[in-house]
Write a protein that binds this DNA or RNA. Sequence first.
RNA 1: GUGGAUAUAGCGUAGCUGGUUAACGCGCCAGAUUGUGGCUCUGGAGAGCGAGAGUUCGAAUCUCUCUAUCCACC
Length: 377
Amino acid sequence: MYQLLKQEGNARRGTFTTVHGTVETPAFMNVGTAAAIKGGISSFDLKDELKCQVELCNTYHLHLRPGDKLIKKLGGLHKFMGWDRPILTDSGGFQVFSLSSLRKIKEEGVYFSSHIDGKKIFMGPEESMQIQSNLGSTIAMAFDECVENPSTYEYSAQSCARTVRWLERCKAEMERLNSLPDTLNPHQLLFGINQGCVFDELRIAHMKEIAKLDLDGYAIGGLAVGEPKEDMYRIISAVTPYMPQNKPRYLMGVGTPCNIIEAVGRGVDLFDCVMPSRNARHGHLNTWSGIRNIMNAKYEDDLRPIDEECGCPTCQKHSRAYLRHLFKAHEMLGMRLAVMHNLYFYNTLMEKIRDAIETGRFEEFRQKYVPLLDSRI
RNA sequence: GUGGAUAUAGCGUAGCUGGUUAACGCGCCAGAUUGUGGCUCUGGAGAGCGAGAGUUCGAAUCUCUCUAUCCACC
């Protein structure tokens, strides 16, 4: 259940309550694709050190390995990972399109080959819901088609229509699964996903259609896939007025700190992105004055922390020089310390955004940080 | 001490019978990365070829001397 606490312009400060606890929004969901945050981060790190509220896991990956039936047998994803707060599972829709080869899209679903062993797999709306039900996540995402950019208007329109039909099937299947006696989480929530490529009319029409289905939340998908950021911002602005006020709004796969601030300013509540963890693994560390590549030679003898304003465990203890050395030597500790730093940064960014909205200073916050946070230092 | 082999960028190598600004991998320096394969991709700097002398229009490539290293045998 979503509750709006305060609004400044379009920016929303709220709470989202689930059976696994309440999420203060706007929030960033930390991405743990295969039931793990890459870089050696445990659920106790997330909870005790990194201020993580929600974790995202992946239906596609967990279905292939270790298998959703096994996870159900072991008591569900929460128990498996040792994480008792909310988990959102991505539907597999995006991965079918971004990772697998030889895919064939039909009305019933998608036939594709596993990126692990090439095995032929079928996934449709019902299969995706069944897998997510077996995982027992807090929030399940609808099975959608994420159309490539660029795509033609005609193809995008046809795909949107199919995504609506798939969404109706997702909803029916989720209701059925939630009512089964042996279901892990009878209160599993379902979010629908808006598509429509970069065409405003398609986006709006699609959003209006799926809003009628009265789902637990709504996502904007298919953005940050190569289009200019102006297109992304324009589409968010076009679509959010048609998203239900009393439901959480989730912008999928986004993004940079500036992307997040801009999207919050347009009314978005939830985000997820691989960027903080992937960038960390590549030595690109977020700071309040921009992005620092810790492998740069200039940090060789720099004894300061990554960011002097940061309160993360890494910055409390270790220097830029040490981090640089660990990266150069390919020591796994380097990655772990870097990922901890970036996730702490993102979760703190969201905390600051929430404070800013609460105190009516979001616009001030935006003007201060948008010119800084995505820059290279 | 004798015989043999080898010396090309920080490291490992390629450069055929001498022919335009000496090539490649790793490393180094710097970018990219948006519902995750730690991968990958894109640029850049860096040697004048162990030292010296010669042959030649022209030498990393041929000759001589020296030096260093390695391997055998004393």
